[in-house]
Design a protein around this nucleic acid. Sequence first.
RNA 1: GCGAUCGUAGCUCAGUUGGUUAGAGCGCCGGUUUGUGGUACCGGAGGUCGGGGGUUCAAGACCCCUCGAUCGCCCCA
Length: 425
Amino acid sequence: MSKNTPQAIRGTQDIFGPDAEAFAFVVETFERVRKLYRFRRAEMPVFEKTEVFARSIGETTDIVSKEMYSFDDRGGESLTLRPEFTAGIARAYLTNGWQQHAPLKLATHGPLFRYERPQKGRYRQFHQIDAEIIGAAEPQADVELLAMADQIIRELGIEDVTLHLNTLGDGDSREAWRAALVEYFSAVRGELSEDSQERLEKNPLRILDSKDPRDRKFLGNAPRIDDFLTDEAKAFFEAVTSGLDAAGVKWTRAESLVRGLDYYRHTAFEFIPDEGSEAAGKLGSQSTILGGGRYDGLMESLGGASTPAVGWAAGIERLAMLVGENDQAPADVIVIVEDDSFIGQGISALRLLRQDGLTAELISSGSPRKRFDKASKLNPRAILSLGGQGQLGSPVRSSEEALVDRIADLLSNSASFGSLASPRA
RNA sequence: GCGAUCGUAGCUCAGUUGGUUAGAGCGCCGGUUUGUGGUACCGGAGGUCGGGGGUUCAAGACCCCUCGAUCGCCCCA
């Protein structure tokens, strides 16, 4: 590579080969399954006014305070490349009057941008699949959404992944719990890790899933959300869990599972590989493959009417790491032209084969005598050889009898090959 | 933002305590062999050893800076 060649931006990826096939497989599976659940497809811009994210995600969160790709456009307006889907979807819902479709089940996927240090399963431009149900206050919406997530993961062939489920309660429950946590941890402030002392100010809930042993010894006796849940919040969570049981979705209670963003209420969840599983090993420290929750407070933060909603997002790259090898399938037919005067016939043959639904590719470059070798290395189901040393009597070679006949019929019914002797051996 | 490890042909990597024109395998291109064939052999193209500076008679190897990659912390999908 010349030193003159510009490099890709840090944290971006050029995806190709098996990785790209796995990526496509994730997206195709998502598209197929979301139709089964009758989620509507939506497309949003990849950038928005900065305030869309600042107001909904929370000014003090890491995402807004230091991870956004923001810039002023030529008109002097501050714009931001979307760091997540939910805020933009909420904005679209409000500005397009999608209230008329409520409750609205939406699905989308595409690139997102966060200025973070890249590491395994984590990029500055990354990609997510995303599903939201907007305008549905009932716990059945949570169940519906989680059932779809569970089915997608299973249809991707990903195993040893468990749904970790928690409730943050309604607004009142969450605030009371939060206050109790602050009081509890403040009492032992000096013994907490430096990170957690800072969390105490910014995001006390996060102390609960700290990995630092200095913090962990206090977690056992920390106030529990269950003690602060209102009757309504408790009933809501029970409806979600019994619904999941009815839907056959396995889950486990995760009392320390919290959400970083301000707008979450009630249900919070993550699909996480089981400890010690193969999937956990492949993901390194980025263990969550799908996460989300209920965000009943979000629409109001954007100036809309109070609107209940629930959603999730999953990193396509992380899912793709778990779906295994997915390389391009071998061709049905490789057409080789061992004499360049047959190139026209080669092109005609490709058209016939592809119109009939066969995957086909032409080899007509390089040393003529090595073209057959090239074709063989591609391991196709059949090789069609044109112009090879007067061997026109049997130009199709394959171990599949039916395929030989099919190709032979295609060619012999075409004017371009009318003069050709029977392709059958 | 912090820490650790690492950057040698298109790819995977060798390159002894710093010592002459920097190597292999695979891939690519061509030739010979074979002649209905994925074989074998021969040859070729392709590297200012990530970039810059320094130490030295001498640096791919040592030092500094920088860029990038990887993994972890923070945070998060």
